[in-house]
Amino acid sequence: MNRIENEASRAFLSALAAPGRAADIGEADDIYGWLVGSWSLEVLRYRGVDLRGKGMMAEAHFGWALEGRAIEDVWIMPPRGTRPPQDPEFNMYGTTLRSWDPDLRAWRISWTNPARSHRETQIGRRVGNEIVQTGARADGQATRWRFAEITSRGFHWIGEALDRDGSTWFIEGEFLATRVEG
């Protein structure tokens, strides 16, 4: 990377990152701020494949963005440093932008994983002790992603899709997260 590219990257990251949530987002509405930091992920399932006990790992990094009105993350599988040149089956290097919508009183979520041409849009809210994000894919298939078993040191992330029968949810992705920084 040359000097101009390096300076441009620093300027971009400085403009994107925020030190914390915006003052106009109330504490009760801040359902994602606890995620800020870095996480190690044990992959239990991905693309419906049961990977428990296989040692598949991933990493995720979360931070405040856009003047504190959004949380952005990066999910990477396999983790950097262990990534093969190209793993077509289990390749994830994507980002989520969770933006606060004061009119909706919920978070608008946009996920993209360019490594697999996968995109999702959802709405996120607290439901009991979980954070639940719901949406539908371009083909109309309903999706539900949940942060469950939330503690200061970990969480269980479950990504589900609604079967064509309209009543059965099936797990497409599942991760156990452990905080490593933040």
Rank of each mutant, 00 (worst) to 15 (best):
R3F: 03
N6M: 09
A11H: 05
A11M: 07
S14Q: 11
G20E: 05
A23L: 08
A23K: 12
A23Q: 10
I25W: 07
G26H: 03
A28H: 08
A28S: 14
D30F: 10
I31N: 07
W34D: 11
W39V: 05
L41N: 03
Y46V: 07
G48K: 05
V49F: 06
D50N: 14
R52T: 14
G53R: 08
M56W: 07
F62K: 08
G63F: 13
E67Y: 04
R69L: 06
V74I: 14
V74D: 08
W75A: 08
W75Q: 09
P78L: 04
P85Q: 06
P88N: 04
P88T: 08
M92R: 07
G94A: 04
R98N: 15
R105Q: 15
W107I: 09
I109G: 14
N113M: 04
N113S: 12
S117Q: 13
T121F: 02
I131D: 06
Q133F: 12
G135Q: 02
A142Q: 13
W145P: 00
I150C: 03
R153H: 15
H156D: 10
H156P: 08
H156G: 08
W157G: 07
W157F: 15
I158Y: 02
G166H: 04
W169N: 09
W169L: 02
G173R: 01
E174S: 03
E174A: 05
L176Y: 02
